[in-house]
């Protein structure tokens, strides 16, 4: 009988053991608190006109969950220790001598909207060797982002011709050096590309002659669909109308004669009132004097919802300026194809 009972106990133990099933071919991901802090470029690129005397990139931390629940959409959780971010120039287009173009480097971070570490005399460790294209910058603890600014020779690219080749610098982050107290890594797939925008091309600020009744009417017909303030404009109230074609962005700015007081970091300031439309460039022909352009923006509705607008058409640069032929689409309505003539 005892042998039967021993057999029984053995089989029961066996069945209990069998329920402790192995999870074959399982690799658990390092998620939650085990997921490291990630440093990356804030943007994939930037660009400025040929005569710019500096360019910069920002290094930021990815958003993380806010354990307090105050920011359900997440927030940046600053590092608990200083780390050093190594970066280098991966590629350059349209020129050979980096040292002739980049003259210096500095780095800072924002303390508040009006104060930077530079203002406070805080020196961030940053180095850049233009000969090798390699550099590093300190990313201090308790900081959300660091901006690295490269001082450039403003005459290096500044010419009077429309260049047919791209001029750019591509940078990557190559390493993060930490003491190991906190898990910190970096995004090695992202690149930051700075492009030199040709001011003989489509980029730049283009001004519309608002005193020309025809041009002004066309402008209102085109953008008045999207913006009621533009639709209701009177030419006499306008001081200036500009369409700025920047790196990946288009801004339509109507500066009014009417002044208003705004709070700036240095105190209150009287400025012209402004009506502004901002849109992302979806398509733009560059390195050419004529081509296609398409930009898309959003308009917030009275109830807080968002509606998208799209402008699509062609541009042509002439000796007189730029000819923009655009058709707008917003709220299931389309404008006619309208031609605007603007000057630099």
């Amino acid at each position: 009988m005892k042998s039967i009972q021993l057999l029984l106990c053995g089989l029961l133990l066996l069945s209990a053991w069998s329920c402790d099933k192995k999870n074959d071919d399982l690799v658990m991901p390092n998620t939650g608190d085990n997921f490291p802090q990630v440093i990356r470029f804030d943007d994939e690129g930037d660009g400025d006109l040929e005569d710019a005397d500096e360019f910069s990139f920002k290094l930021v931390l990815n958003d993380r969950s806010d354990a307090s629940g105050e920011n359900p959409g997440g927030k940046i959780t600053p590092l608990k220790e200083d780390v050093t971010v190594l970066f280098e120039v991966k590629e350059k287009e349209g020129f050979n001598n980096l040292a002739s173009y980049i003259k210096g480097v500095k780095a800072f971070y924002e303390i508040d909207d009006c104060t930077t570490s530079e203002d406070q005399g805080i020196d961030l460790d940053v180095i850049f060797d233009a000969a090798t294209g390699k550099g590093s910058v300190s990313f201090p603890k308790d900081v959300e982002e660091v901006e690295v600014v490269f001082e450039t020779d403003e005459d290096f690219f500044n010419d009077n011709v429309l260049n047919k080749d791209e001029r750019s610098i591509t940078m990557i982050v190559t390493a993060v050096q930490t003491s190991g107290a906190e898990k910190v890594t970096f995004n090695n797939a992202l690149e930051f590309k700075y492009e030199v925008l040709d001011d003989e091309g489509v980029h730049g600020d283009w001004e519309l002659d608002h005193e020309d009744a025809t041009e002004f009417a066309r402008f209102k017909a085109l953008f008045g669909k999207v913006n009621e303030d533009i639709a209701g404009l009177d030419a006499d109230d306008v001081d200036k109308i500009e369409i700025s074609i920047e790196y990946n962005e288009v801004k339509v700015v109507v500066e009014l004669k009417e002044m208003e007081e705004i709070d700036e970091c240095d105190g209150p300031e009287m400025v012209n009132k402004v009506i502004e439309l901002e849109a992302d460039l979806e398509d733009l022909s560059t390195l050419t004097d004529e081509g296609e352009i398409e930009f898309v923006g959003e308009v917030e509705q009275p109830d807080g919802s968002i509606k998208e607008f799209v402008y699509k058409g062609e541009f042509k640069i002439t000796s007189a300026g730029i000819e923009l032929v655009l058709k707008g689409e917003y709220d299931d309505e389309e404008t006619d194809k309208i031609t605007l003539l603007l000057k630099k």
Partner: peptide, 24 residues
């Protein structure tokens, strides 16, 4: 193979970004 992908995820966390809003 999910395990193979997870191995890559653990080795290259910098390539991934959490959708915090969806998580919340």
């Amino acid at each position: 193979n999910v395990a193979s992908f997870n191995r890559f995820f653990n080795q290259n966390p910098g390539l991934f970004e959490l959708d915090v809003e969806s998580k919340s």
